[in-house]
Amino acid sequence: MSAPRRIILPLTDELVAELRAGDRVLLNGTLLTARDAAHKNLVALIAQGAPLPVDLYGQVVYYVGPSPAPPGRVIGACGPTTSGRVDSYTPALLARGLKGMIGKGFRSPEVITALKEYRAVYFGAVGGAGALLSKCVRAARVAAYPELGPEAMHELVVADFPAVVINDIYGGDLYREGRRQYAVNDGGGVLCGQA
């Protein structure tokens, strides 16, 4: 396991081209957060040709709905949520310059194709490590849609936020490759379709 690479955000095309599935990274800078409802709103605005409340160019979106920040803290627990729920919205955001996403779980074939087309990467963060990951967040503020409560878009300033490249622009897929490396049975031959 090689040492993680420290990355200063926002992402550029050159940096994205250097990232390969399996690379561990430490992200530094500003992340935007968005879940299902915020994605729905953004994509509706794009369809109308209306301006967006945030500039997506070069940005990384983190799929997270943090728990409330107790007094004296920047944020509550803030681990990744399942990415697949926003798959249908993702290509439209990539077309607007989004360069990275952080979440957990499979992406659809359409998203994986769009990553190649628009030159963007999908990072995985450790699901269920919400307390640990909260320690990487230095500042948080609502960026859009405060009425959505836990689904509001936030801007998070992070320091050395740990993630791993799951899908790169070359078709690399860590979920598929990691599993292939360690599988000793296919569960009777009916099982390898989705991984």
Binding site: G76, G130, A131, L132
Partner: peptide, 21 residues
């Protein structure tokens, strides 16, 4: 190891183990 560290932080500081409570 990260999950075990996460559990230690959560218990010590009363932060939820996971944001999806």
């Amino acid at each position: 190891g990260q999950l075990l560290e996460n559990a230690r932080i959560a218990a010590r500081e009363e932060i939820p183990i996971c944001q999806d409570t």
